[in-house]
């Protein structure tokens, strides 16, 4: 294996279902329902998925949900806003742990 991530592997995703197909089928049925139009439009769900893909830094998901967002009519500006939301939550999640740091520091230190 020359690389952990190869673009052509995205097309092979379904091969995972060759073992324990009943689990794969249940996952796929649930997955398809999750992304169907509901109270949120399919375009909005694709943009959420794109943001999550960036937060998880999954190259397959970034590839798939950039395409899916475009297909559902999203544009570059909307996709960029979505990944800023992901970035803001990641940054905020780090900073919010600062409270834990402060609690420990105040317990141990003299400030």
């Amino acid at each position: 294996m020359d690389s952990y991530y190869r673009p052509e592997d995205l097309e092979r995703f379904a091969e995972v279902g060759r073992t324990k197909p009943e689990l794969w089928e249940r996952f796929m049925a649930w997955y398809e329902e999750v992304f169907a139009d509901g109270a949120l439009a399919a375009r909005e769900k694709a943009l959420i998925a794109l943001g999550v893909a960036h937060a998880l830094q999954c190259p397959y998901c970034i590839d798939a949900y950039t395409r899916k967002s475009l297909e559902h009519g999203a544009d570059l500006e909307q996709m960029t806003e979505a990944i800023h939301v992901a970035g803001a939550i990641r940054g905020g999640a780090s900073l919010s742990h600062g409270v834990q740091m402060r609690t420990v520091a105040q317990t141990l230190g003299m400030e």
């Binding site: 139009d37 439009a41 399919a42 375009r43 395409r67 475009l70 297909e71 559902h72 009519g73």
Partner: peptide, 19 residues
Amino acid sequence: HNPVGMFLPGSQASLERDY
């Protein structure tokens, strides 16, 4: 609606609701 790029259009019903 046709795609603004080299990809297929999404679901017609979903795009119609969005439009």
